[in-house]
Design a protein around this nucleic acid. Structure first.
Lengths: 199, 199
DNA sequence: AATTATAACTGACAGATTGTCATATGTCAA
DNA sequence: TTGACATATGACAATCTGTCAGTTATAATT
């Protein structure tokens, strides 16, 4: 993650570099992105780049983390606001993510990000995906959930988050409107709540 | 996809190149893999490689497709065998995929593959993910499903496949035994069937 | 103000990779 | 034997990465 030297930089310079990073990662997925393009655009010498980041991957994850922090924060806030109602909180989270990635300024960046979703990036975007359970579990109201104990919560979060990410990723290919996109996710969420089998 | 020239090659030569491809993609994810390594290992000249494939990505997808074909074929066969019982068929499919990727010979290759899951690869591994619905829908028994028409089937397949892929990917990090891994997936599948909310 | 310590900056360079292309070689039918 | 076509080959230009030794800026100390 971005070296201290970078974090110490004056805001203006730092933001200029972040701008150049985002431009390159909007144009190319991580595997095709070039340090050369970034330094040309940001007008910094090659040596500086390596003083700020270990390599291009390091810079990539620095940028991703800016967004992933927002997402995790938002979910926790919603859980508190909604008295631990996990389904409602994820419904709100979905809308929040959509509005974030559909912002004209972010559109191409997130498209590259989601269509080349590595484990590590998914990890950063799904609050429960790896470590997050500890953080979330204490805020969730499990009394209405179909599980024996808080321990089963992980399964439920797995299902919801998989479906959520999947919908986001597919939305890029399906070219759905934001409204239609939300409709599909909520339809699936409702199937998850009630079960896919007839009673 | 692999040029005709490659497909025309005598089997022995072709298999030797496939072996070298797999070796390189077992060692490095696509983004770090090198043509140089492959041609050194396969003992073919550089020019030949580019006569067989457009680039390294092309070679990568050629290899992935070998496995994805098996998976789609297996699911369809199971659906027929199980009279369109979709849940049972995916349970069987999950075991099939696990046995495939836990085979000692494939282990590292699939680890790289799943931990760097691009949209296109996911697309190849999940029968419904994109186009497959047409193929699958006619074999599914929807009478027991909680949907109004065959049209809703896409939602259900989305949920199941997301959860399935997610479990496979996580299994690499969690280091679960095959048995425990299956147990988790079946627990989640059962929540999906019955619903995550208490009745 | 001068000196010293510490942090940041810089760009030339070695090492390595990619995709191409002109040339060579093989195959097969007429 | 010849011509037409497919395939093979490796040297090469273009490009990229990460490093490093030398330079400059900043801050603290005397």
């Amino acid at each position: 993650m971005a070296k201290q030297t970078f974090l110490n930089l004056p805001d203006e310079k730092k933001e200029n570099i972040i701008r150049a990073l985002k431009k390159e990662f909007s144009k190319s997925a991580l595997k095709d992105a070039l340090v050369s393009n970034i330094i040309r655009d940001a007008k910094i010498p090659r040596g500086s780049f390596y003083q700020y980041f270990n390599d291009i991957e390091d810079a990539y994850y620095f940028l991703v983390e800016e967004y992933s922090r927002k997402i995790k924060k938002y979910l926790l806030e919603e859980l508190v606001k909604n008295s631990g109602d996990i389904v409602l909180s994820y419904r709100k989270l979905y809308r929040y993510i959509l509005s974030m990635i559909e912002d004209e300024e972010n559109k191409e960046y997130f498209e590259k990000l989601f269509l080349n979703m590595s484990y590590d990036v998914q990890n950063m975007f799904t609050p429960n995906f790896n470590d997050g359970l500890n953080m979330i579990v204490m805020h969730v109201d499990v009394s209405k959930l179909n599980i024996a104990s808080k321990f089963g919560l992980g399964y439920i979060l797995d299902i919801i988050e998989s479906t959520m990410m999947n919908n986001i990723i597919k939305s890029y290919k399906r070219n759905l409107s934001k409204e239609k996109n939300i409709e599909v996710f909520e339809k699936e969420l409702s199937l998850i709540c009630l079960g896919i089998l007839k009673k």
